[in-house]
Write a protein that binds this DNA or RNA. Structure first.
Lengths: 156, 156
DNA sequence: AGGTCTTGCGCAAGAATCTTGCGCATCCTT
DNA sequence: AAGGATGCGCAAGATTCTTGCGCAAGACCT
């Protein structure tokens, strides 16, 4: 597991550029960060090898793909033993509507980021799957109206 | 703005592959989806041009970059007029700790996805910036313990 | 100081990939 | 059955990737 990486200014520029356009050619990237292509590629490889860059992902347009409902669910369990937490975490992985999930501390135990084609599908999921799932105590949902900010990890 | 796209099986395969590895070469992608490189590239270009693929992003390792705290904030406002909502949305864009934000309906008005180097920084942000921001009524936070699922938009 | 070691850049060349035009097959329409 | 539209694969030139190598700048030790 990585010690806090020591990155110089060029590394940070690379991370910023690849967050902004993960498919940029290495030639273009090298031009933007001010070094030639070979050392630039070596830096990118190093960042990948050290796990600082975890992966590259295409971000898709949900409504264009027929996914009109984005929502968050805050789930509270009755029991929070390690076994219970793991059991629920495993269950989230088998629900396609749940796209991302976090174990959290606070008033709830899990935060679910959900995506559904329509409101009916989402409500059916919440009522028939989530609420009626073993050990689930409370479910609070927040339907998103629109996303107002979407940045990568590293600041502007 | 796009009508629901009509995509065939190969297009869906392309979307799945590029979600999984957005930097895959077109040759490798074409091999995986079962067509030759030129038509594959034309399909990808079309998906990009129609806005179905919005962008490509490198996903970074937050702890390795010194960001140890991931949290969600549910923010409720006193007044929810269009002007008030827009004012708060604008403010989220100027807070570097807030990486993504959604306007939501339900018990709260905004969901914030936050990232901070340590707990102190995050608490200072919540108390001195967020809670004391004009028109902010309630703030509920959920610190994440760990992420248990992380998928792209399109199902497995 | 001087020598050595390490680090990281840029050049260059072969391999791989991208990109475009083009011909052809298939399917749908008339 | 003819015509048109769609979308594939081939081929070739342009671009990019990738590797080895030489060199310069700084660190470190004696």
């Amino acid at each position: 597991m990585p010690i806090k990486a020591d990155l110089d200014a060029i590394d940070w520029k690379i991370l910023r550029e690849l967050q902004d356009d993960g498919r940029m050619t290495n030639v273009e990237l090298s031009r933007r960060v001010g070094i030639s292509a070979p050392p630039c590629l070596r830096r990118v490889k190093r960042l990948e090898d050290e796990g600082i860059i975890q992966r590259y992902r295409a971000l898709l347009n949900a409504p264009a793909l027929g996914m009109d409902v984005v929502a968050f669910c805050l789930v509270g369990l009755n029991r929070q033993s390690e076994v219970d937490l793991k059991a629920f975490a495993d269950r989230t992985r088998n629900w396609p509507i749940v796209r991302s999930a976090w174990m959290v501390s606070g008033e709830s135990d899990f935060m679910l980021h959900c995506l559904a084609p329509d409101l009916g599908t989402f409500q059916t999921f919440v009522i028939e799957e989530l609420t009626s799932s073993p050990n689930v105590d409370t479910v609070r949902t927040a339907l998103t109206i629109r996303q107002v900010k979407d940045e990568g990890l590293v600041g502007i």
